[in-house]
Design a protein around this nucleic acid. Structure first.
Lengths: 305, 305
DNA sequence: GTCATACCGTGCGTTTTTGCATGTCATACC
DNA sequence: GGTATGACATGCAAAAACGCACGGTATGAC
């Protein structure tokens, strides 16, 4: 009784995705192959791993057990690949960076440009994603994140402190200035359930007009004059058609970090990227904070645990 | 950067065996395939895993790292397979038993006969080996062992207490009886470096005549009258042409145990085997100890940790 | 009721992987 | 110096794995 390890990997993918086709896509193979490998695994272990329902493959208890162990094996594999990658001190090959969608254009793109000029041998792959990619699972090598807790087990540097401001179209700001008791319409991002408390304290007649699951759409709505949006200063300041609401003071917000897995952090390629990234953000630090020009000592601080 | 898990398994086998051919045999595949898989793994990880010397493949530091992680993965796989097997409560399929070579004929064979009669659906595989097979790595399902420490992490039952006696050909025994000061020739097993201390105390003029690495050969030499052999009572008593040396009293010896991995211990097949094995040994308990017929209460005692 | 979608199973041709046979090289031993 | 052995490389044919196309079934929308 011995099992092909790739069959275990396939079982894991199938348990995760729930359908042959999904697992096949995840593994980059045809779903027929997934079905056949699962058959082989079941034969090898002499156990039924899935109930084959018309709606899809549902793992039995045994199947879940197999997937659990396969996940452990996958973790080992990931650790191994990180270690091997961590020993690579060459300045060629792949480098995968992820950053928040809206930060890339104004701030990351210049870094990318300088980096590819300096290191043409490195194939750079950019994942613009607001999801947190899993650096343990090697979905990216380096992540730029806007977060208060950039990653428990990761190594990181703070690129910039950051404040939010409240922005709206000039007409709305004028109306607020004219009559402070006029009700203010807010456009809210879905991860927040309500208007910022400090804002309600200043303008008690505030109300939520709409909630968005997408920041770009939300900004578009603000430009169209639908209401007030709270967003990072760097974003509001550079969005045409929006001005800051004067009576609502900027608030401290999650800082901008660059983080990576400790196993690969010291790699030449990552080091080279940081060598360009960190000074660039430092040079534009003032754009993220409220008191333009002042000098806080805590920028680009090290973080690790 | 993703790696085929079977390639990792192959790297592990190659590091363990040190040569393509050895790894191929261990995996049951052709050695050319081993070479090709290793090539693939090196390409996938972008690292050199082996130095290809004319004398064989020697792992680099990276290669050893890969093998370490692959060994972890293998451990996961073994644990998984044990768990899956442990859920199997059917009385069909394979069952692998291991026992010391010389115990099988007189004591295990009758159990095997009764077992295959009772459960013809089970394919029984007997590994007669004096080596300790690794039950964690599923080299056998159930092991009968003569040992004081039958297995740290294993579950087990004591099948019989056991004593050794000193045996020789009748001529030698007669000579010893006639002149206790005559030098006694001993035949020693290689794991012991010297004559048993208690025997030297009684016959100070004892000396080591030969050392053997094989018990069957050692017994043959004793039958041919080359000297005295210390061996389990059950073995000496049933060997034609040997009699016990009267003045050398039997000594307590390692007991006989049946052990298995906790994950599979409760399986129907293993339970069925023990149901025949344990009573059989109990019925012949007296053959292993010195006071034939007496009744010690500690037989077939449970052991676990 | 019909259409569209998203599953799964099966058969066939193609690609990839594998095993075998042969060749080469270094080492050890007569 | 010649020979035998054990290791690795290489080329080719067989075998296995794979992807694709087609057919069947359940579900949900219109």
């Amino acid at each position: 009784m011995t099992v092909d390890w790739d069959d275990l990997k396939t079982v894991l993918a199938l348990v995760r995705s729930g359908s042959l086709a999904g697992a096949g896509t995840a593994l980059g193979i045809n779903y027929t192959t997934v079905a056949r490998r699962v058959q082989r695994a079941e034969a090898a272990m002499g156990a039924v791993l899935f109930e084959k329902l018309p709606s899809g493959y549902v793992a039995t208890e045994t199947g879940r057990m197999v997937a659990d162990h396969a996940a452990q094996m996958e973790g080992q594999q990931d650790a191994l690949l990180r270690l091997v990658q961590g020993r690579d001190q060459s300045l060629q090959g792949n480098l995968v960076i992820t950053a928040p969608q809206l930060l890339i254009g104004p701030y990351v793109a210049p870094v990318l440009a300088a980096f590819t000029d300096a290191h043409p041998q490195i194939d750079l792959y950019v994942k613009a994603s607001n999801d947190l990619l899993n650096l343990n699972r090697r979905e990216a090598d380096l992540a730029i994140r806007i977060s208060r807790t950039p990653g428990d087990t990761l190594k990181g540097l703070r690129l910039a402190e950051q404040y939010t401001g409240c922005f709206a179209s000039p007409e709305i700001v004028a109306r607020i200035a004219k009559d402070p008791n006029d009700p203010i319409d807010w456009l809210i991002y879905e991860s927040y359930t309500d208007i910022p408390a400090f804002a309600r304290a200043i303008y008690p007649s505030s109300r939520v007009r709409m909630t968005f699951d997408d920041m770009v759409a939300q900004i578009g709505a603000a430009q169209a004059g639908l209401g007030v949006v709270r967003m990072p200063l760097f974003l509001g300041r550079r969005t045409p058609g929006l001005v800051q609401v004067p009576n609502l003071p900027p608030q401290p917000y999650a800082d901008i970090w660059v983080v990576g897995h400790p196993d690969v952090w010291r790699t030449a390629k990552l080091q080279a990227f940081r060598d360009i990234l960190v000074p660039y953000f430092r040079s534009r630090r003032s754009e993220f904070v409220t008191d333009v020009g002042s000098d806080h000592p805590k920028h680009a601080q090290s973080h690790q645990n």
